[in-house]
């Protein structure tokens, strides 16, 4: 094994798709991103949990779109030309997350990722898996699996 390969094993490089939401920049693992869609009308679903914005038809499949702002404890935002629906895969689930805009794909070494700061009992802290200072900007890395609790994922299945 040459030195470069050895270094990559010791300090793996991961790719993150970054998006903007409520003035902050977040990142999700590129391997979990299926596609990025322009905003399309989301059909509201009566009887759905509050974190569900609605559903869309993605090439014949019904995909649930999550209200990311609600989940991140942010105020309701406006739909703009930059608004995107990021289709992500987490375990057995494929869901859409509504974001203000999608920025870029960044490469991060594992060593660049720091543990999230303790924010007490803030519920949104549980799905932050790390933070990173990239180009003088704080990047918050999201653990999509923990975006919902096990119970909520089950609830989503029976939507």
């Amino acid at each position: 094994m040459n030195m470069l390969a050895q270094k990559n094993v010791e300090d793996p490089i991961l790719q993150w798709v970054t998006f903007r939401l409520g003035g902050e920049t977040y990142g999700v693992n590129v391997m979990q991103v299926q596609e990025v869609l322009r905003y399309t009308d989301v059909a509201s679903v009566p009887g759905a949990p509050t974190y569900v914005l609605g559903i869309i038809n993605l090439r014949g499949n019904v995909v649930t779109v999550m209200d990311t702002r609600q989940r991140f404890s942010l105020d309701h935002g406006e739909i703009t030309d930059s608004t995107r629906i990021v289709i992500v895969e987490t375990g057995e689930h494929t869901v859409g997350i509504l974001v203000d805009s999608v920025a870029e794909v960044v490469y991060l070494k594992q060593s660049e990722v720091e543990n999230p700061p303790s924010t007490g009992h803030d519920e949104s802290a549980r799905f932050i898996q790390g933070v990173c200072n990239k180009n003088d900007e704080l990047l918050i890395l999201v653990d999509l699996e923990k975006l919902l609790t096990g119970e909520e994922w089950s609830e989503l299945e029976s939507l």
């Binding site: 059909a43 679903v45 009566p46 009887g47 759905a48 949990p49 609605g54 559903i55 869309i56 038809n57 014949g60 499949n61 019904v62 089950s154 609830e155 299945e157 029976s158 939507l159």
Partner: peptide, 18 residues
């Protein structure tokens, strides 16, 4: 819907009409 813990009167979703 297979499991209808919430609002069981909504028995399903039309895939095209959403």
């Amino acid at each position: 819907r297979d499991r209808q813990a919430r609002a069981p009167w909504f028995v399903g979703t039309h895939k095209l009409l959403l």
